[in-house]
Structure formats: C-alpha cells, structure tokens
C-alpha cells in the first residue's frame, strides 16, 4: 500500500469519524468544535483532490466563519438556559 493511499484512507476515516461524533457527542459545544475539525479535514481533502481554491474557501468559510456562527449560537443557548451564568 502506497503512502498516499494510506494517507487518503486515514483522512477519510478521520472525516467520517469527526462527522459522526459531531452529531452524537453528548455536549453540544463539543459537537460544534468537532464540526470545525471536520471543516479543517475537508480542506485537506480538497487539497488532495487538486482543488486549492476550494481548500482555501473551506478553511476560511467552512471551518472559520461557520464555526464562529455556531459557537455564538451555542453561547447564546447556554446564556438563555442558565441566566446569570
């Protein structure tokens, strides 16, 4: 098995694992962090597919801006549930 194939398989396992964990992990905050990890792994996958344009956009938008929006929503939800916290 060549090194690149091993890397591809490892990356795909990491992608599927982080996606599944993001949806099943008990703590919602962890779920969002896992989705950010998933976005960064996606950027790597795009680089492997010879798509540096999408890799750039995915790292900035998929991981960065989506993460900021979702984290803010989680913070908002927590502040609502635990007033004063």
């Amino acid at each position: 098995m060549s090194a690149t194939l091993a890397f591809d398989l490892l990356l795909i396992v990491a992608l599927v694992w982080s996606a599944a964990r993001a949806l099943t992990v008990a703590d919602l905050f962890r779920g969002v962090v896992l989705l950010i990890v998933f976005g960064l792994l996606m950027a790597l996958a795009w680089a492997r597919l010879g798509a540096p344009d999408i890799a750039l956009a995915e790292a900035a938008i998929g991981a960065g801006l989506t993460g900021a929006l979702l984290l803010d929503a989680v913070g908002h939800l927590r502040a609502k549930r635990e007033p004063g916290a």
């Binding site: 344009d53 750039l56 956009a57 900035a60 938008i61 960065g64 801006l65």
Partner: peptide, 10 residues
C-alpha cells in the same frame, strides 16, 4: 488559486 470568494471570506 484565489479570487473573489476567498478574498471575501478573508
């Protein structure tokens, strides 16, 4: 590689 989308995102 680059362009309006990535620049806008940054």
């Amino acid at each position: 590689p680059g362009g309006a989308f990535q620049a806008g995102a940054v």
